[in-house]
Design a protein around this nucleic acid. Sequence first.
DNA 1: ACCTGAACACCGTTCAAGT
DNA 2: ACCTGAACACCGTTCAAGT
Lengths: 218, 218
Amino acid sequence: MAKKKSKKGTYHHGDLRNHLIQAGLEILSRDGIQGLSLRKVAKEAGVSHTAPYRHFDDKEALLSAIAMDGFAELTRLLDAAYEKNLDEPEAMLIDAGVAYVTLAVSKPDTVRLMFGGSLSMAKVQEEVERFSQEQPESQNPYLAYESLLRIVVHGQEKGAFIEVPSRELALLIWSSVHGLAMLLSGEQLKEPPETREEVEALTRRISELLLVGVIHRK
Amino acid sequence: MAKKKSKKGTYHHGDLRNHLIQAGLEILSRDGIQGLSLRKVAKEAGVSHTAPYRHFDDKEALLSAIAMDGFAELTRLLDAAYEKNLDEPEAMLIDAGVAYVTLAVSKPDTVRLMFGGSLSMAKVQEEVERFSQEQPESQNPYLAYESLLRIVVHGQEKGAFIEVPSRELALLIWSSVHGLAMLLSGEQLKEPPETREEVEALTRRISELLLVGVIHRK
DNA sequence: ACCTGAACACCGTTCAAGT
DNA sequence: ACCTGAACACCGTTCAAGT
């Protein structure tokens, strides 16, 4: 609707694949995950409802491609937190957490698509591999985890983080931030933070507690 | 299919509501969340596909009722962990975490229904209130949180847990365990634990790390 | 009151057919 | 190669009608 129906002559542009993904992102943010149908995406992109099957095996493949976008953005955010705080591992971790949670709250449907479990990671991975020429592996969903792992390892090398296997510590941090992100984006809290500032302050607070731990030391 | 089509004369039993919920649970564990349609539930319960509307506003209302079952079970598990470890707050917390994660892994679709975000908590709450005569509030989705909060407060009173606002500490713990549960039940880990024992051991390990915190102390 | 069957507007997916 | 339109088997939901 908001888009110009520009008849550019190139009705079969090799770009239809990307057009479909963009249309999907638009519908996702407008109508939510429930309102995202393959037929609607096709109509938004200006093609027949069977045209998407030229570029995607099925609906899940298209959704996977959309989710990949989210993974790429998450990876970028984590890497930015890394670069910005090379001398302060704790601030690095907190920045990363805030970035993650902020993304989840601002694009709840995309994040739900990424982590809601309706997509099998195998399918996403498959979609990644089928289309990893241009952007070599920048969209690999597990890359976000690798970026977090790098933050953890860096903190340990600096002597700031506890000396346990990095993968275990990364999983604790991943779980904590991911859980908070899911609870907030799913509006599952009784007294949810209202503004973006409140979300950030809460995330900061919870991250600090994660740093010091639950046990009381006298 | 597995059920006897017993024509008991009571074709309109006031019990249809519960029959529908049971049928829903069965289909959920058999066909997953995608395969759960209102029409299929009705057929499984042996009524026409419009009969459910006598008892539920819409599909989401039925799903909410099914999710309530999960919240009730989660609450029971948390309360059991509480009763069992009155003198050991740390063991109490770890038991609670293991129970949560184990539930999530053994009934991934139910948990996805509870926390996947496709249900608005408002609807679930609505469904709770409409039907809270028999089981007064034992199904309130926020009761699980209250049970966790009780564990946290108890640990603080025993002097075992750090002295910060209980709600903040509860949110950290909730987030961590919830996040781990979601990552595992969604099969989003690169090297997931295979057996139930491995799941439990991993959860135990992560919970211990949560207790001591991320920061290194010399 | 409780349930049914037809009907409506939508789905995802397949397939023969067009250029 | 790339796209279309008809067709199929499913949806959720509404509504007049039956007991």
